[in-house]
């Protein structure tokens, strides 16, 4: 018997004003994407602490996405710039730990970009599947 295909678990931190609204638009437009993604709406991508990302991996996420407003369009003026700088550092940290770089992504999705959100999730799931489960940072292993 064939083993069941690996379904990666993704935690997506979406900012309330752009990316969460963009994912709502994907829903309103009845676009379809894999159900592997669990969205957590935060006020701003700038409020996503590195600890949230580590916590998600620690609790068994196979991939983490942080999505905010496009640079220059932040509802909170400049929160996404801080997010961008912080994420660059987290990338280095994860690389140092030895986690596959594909497991952590950042994107800019506006409230009008339902299609883009859908595509990002589809691509992310596709990229994660060949990697198999994330074990590097998982607590229970």
């Amino acid at each position: 018997m064939m083993a069941e295909e690996f379904e990666p678990k993704i935690v997506a931190f979406l900012c309330k004003w752009c990316s969460s609204a963009g994912s709502d638009l994907a829903g309103v437009s009845r676009m379809e994407y894999p159900s592997n993604v669990l969205p957590i709406t935060v006020m701003c991508s700038g409020s996503v602490s590195p600890l949230y990302i580590l916590s998600a991996f620690n609790r068994g996420a196979d991939g983490v996405l942080v999505s905010g407003c496009h640079p220059g369009d932040c509802h909170y003026i400049k929160g996404n710039y801080y997010a961008r700088r912080r994420i660059a550092l987290i990338n280095k940290l994860l690389e140092y730990i030895g986690l596959e770089p594909q497991r952590f992504q950042m994107s800019w999705v506006s409230a009008a970009e339902g299609t883009k959100y859908t595509q990002i999730i589809k691509d992310f799931v596709k990229e994660l599947k060949p990697l198999g489960p994330q074990t590097k940072l998982r607590k229970d292993l």
């Binding site: 709502d24 638009l25 829903g27 994407y33 159900s35 969205p39 709406t41």
Partner: peptide, 15 residues
């Protein structure tokens, strides 16, 4: 939000 972020974007009832 189990509509815009769930029921409207998925087809497989179990998932």
């Amino acid at each position: 939000n189990i509509r815009e972020q769930c029921s409207w974007v998925h087809k497989d009832m179990d998932k």
